[in-house]
């Protein structure tokens, strides 16, 4: 894509970020959101072979729990969809089996969180299993969603119009997200989401800035926010190219 968009970070962390994109249509903003949720492939355990399970949970329950553990997703190009990586777990009670006990056959695919309890094992109970992780999309199963709670809001511009009439009751004016004030981006949490505490006694006008969206993105640990967003945009581009090729005469 040759068009360039103006992207500005408001908060930036490894797993959580807030950024402003200017010059995109509402449809494209939603396209990015949907691609982040459903179209970026991530690794997750899909098939489990139990060798021994004498815990209090059934094999199927444990397989679901193992599947929901986020795994780090290898860089693009290392794996293609439907490739598998084998992980194994062997814990004997009395102990708790954690996601960190999963031993991977590939150092690119490791549990992203080490402290997720899988099952508490009592004296004499044992869990031994082999699991296959697959690269798939959020469309297929929620465990493959790389982005959690991905959303966006319109950027709103705050303008102080006038003083309030002298005897008017002060009314709270709640906004959430990020507002633009004199060209500066201010997260609303700075003033407790209430504009009347920021500008007491003033009449305020709020309006949407056209085609500017503030995204709030969190990942489950499979990759960084940056990676998720770039991969989501790449997937849109790939599909657009595919469509273009398909409809060409």
């Amino acid at each position: 894509m040759s068009e360039e968009y103006d992207v500005e970070f408001v908060e930036r962390g490894d797993r959580e970020a807030r950024f402003l994109v200017r010059g995109i249509t509402p449809g494209f903003a939603n396209g990015i959101r949907r691609a982040m949720v459903a179209d970026v492939p991530t690794m997750a355990i899909d098939t489990v072979r139990f060798i021994e399970n004498s815990s209090v949970m059934f094999d199927e329950q444990l397989a679901l729990r193992l599947g929901l553990v986020p795994l780090t997703t290898p860089p693009e190009g290392e794996f293609v969809e439907d490739d598998t990586v084998t992980l194994s777990i062997d814990v004997e009670g009395p102990a708790t089996a954690y996601s960190g006990d999963l031993v991977s056959s590939d150092s690119l695919v490791e549990p992203a969180d080490e402290n997720v309890p899988i099952i508490e094992l009592k004296d004499g109970q044992r869990l031994e299993a082999e699991a296959d992780a697959r690269l798939e999309r959020g469309k297929d199963h929620a465990k493959h969603q790389g982005g959690v709670a991905v959303g966006y809001r319109h950027l709103q511009r705050v303008e102080v119009v006038d003083d309030l009439p002298e005897f008017q009751e002060p009314e709270s004016q709640i906004v959430r997200g990020v507002v633009e004030e004199n060209g500066e981006l201010v997260p609303t949490s700075e003033f407790d989401h209430d504009l009347s505490t920021r500008h007491p006694g003033k009449e305020i006008r709020l309006e949407d800035v056209p085609n500017a969206f503030v995204f709030h993105v969190e990942t489950d640990g499979s990759f960084s926010v940056e990676e998720l967003v770039t991969r989501a945009v790449d997937s849109i581009e790939a599909r657009a190219t595919e469509l273009e090729d398909a409809v060409q005469l």
């Binding site: 209090v56 329950q61 729990r65 929901l68 080490e114 997720v116 309890p117 508490e120 959690v148």
Partner: peptide, 20 residues
């Protein structure tokens, strides 16, 4: 039984915080 690995609604991993 055991604490759910992820939040049912949003999919955030919550299991790791249970013990603390």
């Amino acid at each position: 039984m055991m604490v759910p690995v992820r939040c049912f609604t949003c999919g955030n991993v919550v299991g790791e915080h249970w013990e603390e």
